[in-house]
């Protein structure tokens, strides 16, 4: 049976429990669900918001490519990834991954793999809005994110 991932890119918030319920409804074979939620933080009061830009079409396509690799590699029973765009305030959600598998290790690994590749390959960019009202900078890519991705090779 082919497992088809659920991929969405949206400006609206998401509901963690609703996404878990949608993935597990009517299933008797899922023994583990791991979720990851990424939130906007205020960087010790320095940041008033993040502006998330994305490449429409490619963002969904790239997330789907990563999700299909994760499903194949870890034999997942379900995988949902939702990424928001637009202006996001500290404390608000940015990204959600829900991975389902028969046992916990595959679910943990599937969610981790999805996030590590999403951060380095899915076409999204963050711009900071500073708390003092000044025009902020684009967030720089981190070498640590590349290393996190490369550990899966």
């Amino acid at each position: 049976m082919t497992v088809v991932p659920t991929i969405r890119v949206q400006s609206a918030d998401f509901d963690l429990q609703a996404e878990i319920d949608a993935l597990t409804a009517g299933r008797r074979d899922i023994g583990a669900v791991v979720t990851f939620t990424g939130l906007c933080r205020d960087e010790q009061g320095q940041l008033s918001a993040l502006e998330l830009e994305h490449y429409p079409g490619m963002a969904e396509a790239e997330m789907r490519r990563i999700a299909e690799l994760a499903i194949e590699r870890f034999s997942l029973l379900g995988l949902t990834a939702v990424h928001r765009y637009g202006k996001i305030l500290p404390g608000e959600n940015i990204v959600l991954v829900v991975a389902a598998a028969p046992h916990r290790q595959a679910a943990f690994d599937g969610a981790g793999f999805m996030m590590d590749f999403l951060k380095t390959s899915a076409p999204f960019w963050k711009k900071e809005h500073a708390a003092d009202g000044s025009q902020g900078d684009w967030v720089a890519a981190k070498d640590a994110d590349d290393r996190a991705r490369d550990k899966w090779r």
Partner: peptide, 10 residues
């Protein structure tokens, strides 16, 4: 053809 900086989503 899309041209852009390194990605910083997630």
């Amino acid at each position: 053809i899309g041209i852009f900086p390194p990605m910083t989503g997630g």
